[in-house]
Write a protein that binds this DNA or RNA. Structure first.
Length: 473
RNA sequence: GCGGGUAUCGUCUAUCGGUCAAGACAUCGGUUUGUGGUACCGAGAAGCUGGGUUCGAUUCCCAGUACUCGCCCCA
């Protein structure tokens, strides 16, 4: 009590009189140490902006996503690949394209000590495409299907569902131009999201054509917007020069009005692109997938050709949440220096998926919990407990412990809180006799068995408990 | 990058321009011997940072930072 008082007043004194001065009195030395630590804390107590920890409590959601994605990857023939989070900046500049928000203002870009200009990947496809070329995967039988999960980085303003480091599950298929693949990937994306328990999913699809017809369309579009230039927002006036397609996407009222009357890309596709899109829609109809054609869907990466799509879920209030998106990029591999390779891919935002799973209270796979607790009492028993613990685990008996605690009482308290079915108790006497007490945590009864018979005895009890609980349900 | 809101123990939430900032949950310990759940007792634990106003600020004001909502954009 009195000590606390001294502490407080000392703290106050230091704070007011001499925040950083080191005084040498014994009573204040501890306090001074704390002050020093506090300075460090400013740096160490939290990660940089937009970065966050994924705590144990939410790992079940992430595990669920990992399980579902790797299961469906297997079903659809995707093989796992992991590429670096750091690549040469130019890889992204060339693939994603200048004039895009990602490249122009959202990329983590820096020079290494060796003088290389590198970037943290803002998306995964570019790196995977690079790996595809580098490792000569063009000789594999087509399509080459690759999937990956991992962090991507965008220097953007954080808010709910948006972080500077977020995680994506990414699927790419190389070497096949048939639109059935487009449909299959959309189907797969649908199954991933649905398997996670997320309902009210909607796809938005569009075709932005190939470079040939898009050029013609873009000229048409620019001509149209030029004539209405006065009615556009500041941003869009700039976009007219840099990225006119994105004006279609603008959320400003006046731009929406202008864009509504603009020529639509689907009406200006060349015959090849038109047939491709038509076929895709037929496949989607066949699959009964919930999709709408959104002629204004553009996407923020300039490597896309033909098919583009996004996945949305909507909540009770009708609010839309973007979960992921993708599209075809038939020219990317060639532009990066490979041979002509039509390809298509999509990415899902894992953080967003977790958010939706929480919102709909998705059912989670229940992680295995220890059903046995090992308690020890006394020096000899403590010494023997580590070996016994390993012995149990080797025999497939998931066992919890709290070896650091001394009293049996406190160990039992922990065991109870964990909800284990049985506790094994080894005391001085048992350690000498080579025996163990098996305590049933429900009935409270206990029996003593020899070390030899322990594993089988425990297994038998656990097995019986399962049968009982099944009957109970 | 732009605008709005918020900032108190690990968590949730009180209070206050002036003695020791309160409680709940959680954590740890105890209620005598080698036995858990309930109960009782106890301990540790907070005013984001920096300025200003004031005799005095956690409280009022400003800035920074973080979080949050909306815009932009996206996953």
């Amino acid at each position: 009590m009195a000590q606390a008082k001294v502490k407080k007043s000392t703290k106050a004194a230091i704070k007011k009189v001499a925040p950083k001065k080191v005084t040498k009195t014994a009573s204040s030395s501890k306090k001074v140490l704390k002050e020093k630590v506090k300075v460090e804390e400013e740096i160490l107590m939290q990660p940089p902006r937009g970065m966050r920890d994924l705590l144990p409590g939410e790992q079940p959601y992430w595990n669920q996503i990992r399980r579902v994605t790797s299961r469906l990857a297997l079903e659809y023939g995707f093989q796992r690949i992991d590429t670096p989070a750091v690549e040469y900046a130019n890889l992204f500049v060339r693939s994603i394209g200048e004039g895009t928000d990602i490249v122009d203002k959202e990329m983590y870009i820096f020079n290494t000590k060796g003088g290389d200009k590198v970037a943290l990947r803002p998306e995964m496809t570019a790196g995977i495409g690079r790996a595809y070329i580098q490792h000569g995967m063009n000789v594999l039988s087509k399509p080459v299907k690759l999937f990956s999960t991992g962090p991507v980085y965008r220097y953007d303003r954080p808010q709910e569902g948006r972080y500077r480091e977020h995680f994506q599950a990414n699927f790419d298929a190389f070497g096949e131009q048939d639109p059935i693949l487009d449909a299959q990937l959309i189907q797969m994306a649908h199954r991933v999201v649905q398997s996670l328990g997320i309902k009210n999913i909607q796809f938005q699809v569009n075709s932005i054509g190939c470079p040939k017809c898009r050029k013609e369309y873009q000229d048409l579009l620019v001509a149209y917007f030029e004539s209405k230039k006065q009615k556009l927002c500041q941003n869009c006036k700039k976009r007219l020069e840099t990225n006119p397609l994105r004006i279609l996407d603008c959320k400003e009222d006046k731009c929406i009005q202008v864009a509504a009357m603009a020529p639509q890309s689907v009406d200006h596709l060349c015959s090849e692109c038109r047939v491709h899109f038509k076929n895709l829609l037929e496949y989607l109809d066949e699959l009964d997938l919930p999709y709408v054609i959104n002629p204004r869907l553009v996407r923020g990466l300039s490597y896309y050709t033909k098919t583009v799509f996004e996945i949305w879920s909507s909540d009770e209030e009708g609010k839309k949440h973007s979960l992921g998106g993708g599209g075809r990029y038939d020219n990317l591999i060639e532009e990066l220096g490979g041979e002509h390779t039509p390809a298509i891919g999509f990415g899902l935002g894992m953080d967003r998926l977790v958010g939706e799973m929480k919102r709909v209270h998705a059912k989670l796979y229940i992680e295995q919990k220890p059903r046995v607790f090992l308690a020890q009492l006394g020096d000899l028993a403590k010494k023997k407990s580590l070996r016994l613990f390993a012995e149990l685990q080797k025999n497939g008996i998931l066992t919890a412990e709290s070896f650091g605690r001394g009293s049996l009482k406190s160990q039992l308290r922990v065991a109870d809180k964990m909800g284990v079915e049985i506790t094994l108790i080894v005391g001085q006497k048992e350690a000498l006799d080579e025996t163990v007490i098996i305590k049933d945590m429900v009935s409270g009864t206990q029996e003593t068995v020899t070390n030899e018979k322990l594993v089988n005895a425990v297994k038998k009890i656990l097995k019986n408990n399962v049968i009982v609980s099944h009957n109970g349900e």
